[in-house]
Simulated assay, not measured.
Amino acid sequence: MTKILVTVKRIPDPDESLKFAGSELDLSSVKWVPNAFDEYAVETALRLAEDVNNKKSKLAEIIVLSICPQKQRQHMTQFLAMGADRGVIVDADDSELDTAAISKIIAKVAQDEGVDMVITGKLSQDNEGNQVGQRVAGLLGWPQACFAAEIDWDQSGNTLSVHREVDDGVEVKKLPLPAVVSVDLRVVLPTSVRNGVNPADHKFTDGPRLASLRGITMAKRKKVDVKTPSDLGVTNAGGESTVAVNKPPGRMAGQMIGSIEELVEKLATEAKVL
Rank of each mutant, 00 (worst) to 15 (best):
G87Q: 00
N130T: 12
D13K: 13
I62N: 00
L210F: 10
T99P: 04
P249I: 09
T99G: 12
T242H: 11
G138Q: 14
L210M: 09
Q111T: 09
R164Y: 09
A100K: 15
V88G: 02
R214N: 10
L139A: 15
D26T: 15
K104D: 11
K223L: 15
D168Q: 11
T120E: 02
G114E: 09
V166L: 12
D51S: 06
Q125E: 10
K58E: 09
M256Q: 10
Q78C: 00
A200C: 07
P176W: 03
G22Q: 11
K247S: 14
A149H: 07
N53H: 09
V118F: 03
Q255W: 08
N195Q: 07
A21P: 09
M252H: 10
N246T: 11
S192F: 02
V245F: 14
A49T: 00
D38T: 00
C146W: 03
E150A: 07
E262G: 08
T228H: 13
A219E: 00
N54Y: 05
T77N: 01
N54R: 09
S161A: 09
K227A: 08
G196Q: 06
G129V: 12
P12G: 10
S29F: 13
A101W: 02
S29K: 15
P143K: 03
S23H: 12
V193M: 01
N54I: 05
E261A: 14
K3L: 07
L25W: 09
G233R: 14
P178K: 02
A244P: 05
V183L: 02
D91L: 10
T269Y: 10
D184T: 04
